[in-house]
Nucleic acid binder design. Structure first.
Lengths: 135, 135
DNA sequence: CTCCGTGCAAATACTTTGCAAAGCG
DNA sequence: CGCTTTGCAAAGTATTTGCACGGAG
């Protein structure tokens, strides 16, 4: 299942659910989103397909936030901001500005380790939560 | 329990175990390391104290690797390299070079989000695993 | 006496898996 | 028919929590 996408209906739906949001959802979120339209969908299937997507390079994990893994169908490398108050995950477009790509080379030379990817994540309080706190 | 450190014996031991290694261990690793010397130590206590340390700012989480949370007693901000083959976590000292600290400002202005910290993680194959594969 | 820290075991929470049935070419 | 995908429920794994006890001040 390389880049070809003749998925089963459910697999397709799971991928589309992921691709259609910027909320970096959990497996459960995907399940709840699709369940009304696909009543015989099971949570296990969602998990299984998310694994398939990760392995196939169609989706990547943003990491585990508050005990649940968060997924992103946007494969372009970009930083994220995670609100430690509400657990929202936001993209930070243009974040390349903050990162020097020759880090990969440096690490190879210095440690002999072959870097394949990286992740840059900011933690703090999002705008909405900051306003709530200020009330 | 701010920066003062008149801990209980077990709490102290747990912190020391963490501070004495660069392996970014799991709760279980700490437990197994200490168990021989402290036979009546329980895993729950390790978890509880790790939480105390995180909240007290004595220790930080490197994230969840392979289903288990990894901890670091080195609070100075520095990147990590995670080997996706053996799950080893390495420090990358001097990694500040790769990161532009005015990102915090940028995110505040652009998104109104108050960044408190960040984490930069590289993924790939470590030297040892690369050699094994080449055999 | 009071509080904090702890062992222990039970409880949670998320995720994975075995298996038989269903789907599809 | 043979291979893939799925539902369902059970199992698995990591972590958290309730409770009663124990030790330090």
């Amino acid at each position: 299942m390389n880049v070809k996408r003749n998925f089963s209906a459910k697999r397709e739906a799971i991928y589309e659910a992921l691709a259609s949001t910027k909320s970096h959802p959990t497996a459960e979120w995907v399940y709840n989103k699709l369940k009304p339209d696909i009543p015989d969908l099971s949570l296990g299937t969602v998990y299984r397909n998310l694994t398939v997507f990760k392995e196939g390079g169609l989706v990547k994990s943003v990491g585990v936030v508050n005990g649940q893994e968060r997924f992103d169908a946007d494969m372009s490398p970009h930083p994220h901001f995670i609100c430690t108050s509400c657990c929202k995950v936001m993209d930070i477009p243009g974040g390349k500005l903050f990162f020097d790509m020759n880090a990969y080379d440096h690490i190879l030379k210095e440690y002999g380790a072959r870097v394949k990817s990286h992740s840059l994540t900011f933690y703090g309080i999002c705008h909405e939560c900051a306003e709530k706190k200020d009330e």
